[in-house]
Simulated scan of single mutants.
Amino acid sequence: MRPTETARALILAVAFSVLASLAACGSATHEHGDQVHGTRAGHVPPAPPQRAKKKAVPGLPGMPPVLDPQDVYAADRPNRLSPVVKDFPSRIYVPNTESDTVSVIDPKTYEVVDTIRVGRQPQHVVPSWDMKTLWVNNNRGHTLTPIDPRTGKAGRSVDVHDPYNLYFTPNGKYAVVMASLDRELAFRDPHTMKLLKTVPVSCYGVNHADFSLDGRYFIVSCEFSGELLKVDTAQMKVVAQQRLPFRGAMPQDVKISPDGKRFYVADMMADGMWVLDGDTFARPELLPTGKGAHGLYVSRDSREMYVSNRGEGTVSVFDFTQNRLTKKWHLPQGGSPDMGGVSADGKILWLSGRYNSEVYAIDTRTGVQLARIKVGSGPHGLAVYPQPGRYSLGHTGIFR
């Protein structure tokens, strides 16, 4: 670790300790990467200059405050595991949509060590807000299957209609089921999954989302109608809606920038990601990345974001500070990189190979493929677990 990073880590560690004390008092992973724009593959740009600290913005009531107002991912540094998950075995949980199973991979050996039978068409494996449970979204089976990440054993499934994807509000008050075919956002109890409120939507295929820095709203992608929604978290209400300016747009994964100023939305038909100001919700701009852009994953140092291009077997690397793409990694023999996550130490990007019945492990420093592992049919939203962070916002692992 370089001196500046050490100092920053120390500052964040102290901040984490103080916040934890206050809370206790108050309650309760191809070949070598290409060169792009003259940047050498695997090169990490210099740390950005120190910025003046911005005054903290009041967040969603009950939401743990962000550790750094300039970096919403400040709690996700390498191996900074919460006491809740630090003793969980490191595993990769892969939902196989056409096999109705979850393949469990040991990241140390790159071998499948278990296969868990779940409901019909499992789409994503989602960490709960409190990080104690992994929920398997059985879309066509209309159930959620809980997995205990400590033992790797599945529990009794819960009846939930059309659970394509699952998120949790930043204050942990609600689970939000993305009911894609039902055209609903279903707000449920985060523990029992009892339905509390249904929010009908006029777009088709609600599927992915991310929350603003203050947690007061979230942006939702609507895959089949090419639209975006802005939803007020506390009011559980759609407050804005727009159609993307590309005919046949199919928006997928959504991620917020470290500073909270922009949202990025992968689009598998526009072959890139839309850059959106979430506050103003103005017309977004398209940044081409590659054919079939699908998943978005932020590096452990908050400097880069990995974009899986499912239609061409590549991963594009976007630099937040330079505001541009700097690298593109190619999987040997091609592939269909889809959804996944970053290892706890930040060294490996794990992605499912949706149409190849396999999983890819990619070195985040060089872009080299480390492993290609056969799993069930139609692997989709795999979860790397555990990961750093204090709480989960859902999907395959959005931690803050």
Rank of each mutant, 00 (worst) to 15 (best):
P379H: 03
Y167T: 13
D301E: 01
F218Y: 07
V36K: 11
I256P: 06
T192C: 09
W129T: 03
T109D: 10
M250K: 12
N138M: 09
Q35S: 14
F168N: 02
T151F: 06
Q123I: 08
Q241D: 11
D106N: 15
D182N: 15
P146L: 12
M250V: 05
S221T: 07
T101I: 09
V315C: 07
G215P: 08
A13Y: 10
R243H: 03
S221W: 08
K347R: 11
Q121A: 12
S180K: 08
G353E: 06
S90K: 15
H161G: 12
V275Q: 12
G335R: 06
K291H: 11
D279M: 04
P379C: 05
C203G: 10
Y355M: 12
K261R: 14
V66Y: 06
R77G: 04
A209P: 09
M269P: 09
S316Q: 01
T326N: 04
L349N: 03
N79E: 13
T192K: 10
V18T: 07
R354Y: 14
S202V: 12
T289K: 06
D182K: 15
Q322D: 09
Y391G: 00
R354P: 09
W329N: 00
R120Q: 15
K53A: 15
A361Q: 00
P95L: 06
D210K: 06
Y385H: 13
L22Q: 13
P89T: 02
P149V: 00
G381T: 03
G340C: 02
G394H: 05
T133V: 13
M339Q: 14
S180Q: 13
L196R: 10
A56I: 05
P379N: 04
R372S: 07
K54H: 14
L134G: 01
I105M: 00
F399D: 07
K86E: 13
L67D: 11
R51I: 08
V14D: 12
R283A: 13
P388M: 02
